[in-house]
Design a protein around this nucleic acid. Structure first.
Lengths: 157, 157
DNA sequence: GTGTGAGTTGAAGTGCACTTCAACTCAAGG
DNA sequence: CCTTGAGTTGAAGTGCACTTCAACTCACAC
């Protein structure tokens, strides 16, 4: 059990392709030492960083935001369980929001299947929270323009 | 209340940019008649198609799959509520699956915050359903390679 | 020592879902 | 008529998250 991993080993253990790992390094999400022959050697702690990256992506967070989060880890010492817990907790709201949105979408979809609408007229699908009420006659679609709502935009692209 | 809409009107009513509507048309997701002067005029029924497109995107469906779904609508007549209900219902499983995945992720994240892990060792986050159990020693990350699992891949991009 | 599989680089390519641009035409009010 | 805002086109550009490629070097078992 070596205390450093080659890129192939890290790839196998993390399920992330070597090309992606190099890409993450370029973006500053992970780091590697080099051997005399210029090959990457990863400390075992990098495995945890990669885990965090993949989990964060599932939550719907961009690599740029993930980088910012990782940058908040202490550099001096190996991050503690609490450090990781703090980062994970910081995605909690995003995750809750996404689940809430999808759940309402599912319920509305059920309702629409019942009423056969999808008509942009009555269904909450088409005007959730009534955010567009009072902007003149005529119904509008469910989504604010993607550019208006980065949260949604990320889930739409 | 005209029975056809200009691209600007459809854009305003649907919340989708004109450029996106033209793009959808190129992909065959919506259609438009033309005036003598070559301008698009949309039947009101197109509003419903656009609604379906945006909703489907929220579910995590690609435009290509949406096109396939829309292609299954009857061409002879204006789609009935039941037609739309059928299409909506067809996304139901995808939506359930996504919600299930995110919910488990949230719960696991909570668990990990409690135990401080994220360690790729014990946490279900890192090996959901134990799909990788028995493939030799060492834990692996939560995700199959994106290319191995289109469902997940779409939620990750 | 030598072969082979694993690793290195920068540059370019990919796929998706659009947006932007330039150069042009249309439609409608004054 | 004329202006002006809305619409038209094809081609190119954007952002994200990677992957692929070619040309090369390294590490290690035999």
């Amino acid at each position: 059990m070596p205390d450093s991993l080659t890129i192939g080993e890290l790839s196998a253990r993390s399920g992330v392709a070597p090309s992606a790992l190099r890409y993450y390094e370029r973006l500053g999400l992970i780091r590697a030492d080099r051997t005399g022959g210029n090959q990457r050697r990863y400390a075992r702690a990098e495995l945890r960083r990669v885990a965090f990256i993949r989990i964060s992506q599932q939550v719907g967070v961009s690599l740029d935001e993930i980088r910012a989060a990782l940058d908040s880890l202490p550099e001096a010492r190996t991050p503690s369980p609490q450090d990781w817990a703090r980062l994970s907790a910081s995605w909690r709201n995003r995750l809750d929001e996404r689940i809430r949105l999808l759940t309402r979408l599912r319920d509305d979809l059920d309702g629409c299947i019942g009423c056969g609408c999808l008509s942009l007229q009555r269904c909450t699908l088409n005007n959730p929270e009534d955010t567009l009420a009072g902007e003149g006659p005529g119904a509008r679609l469910v989504l604010p323009r993607p550019t208006d709502d980065p949260t949604l935009a990320s889930s739409l692209n």
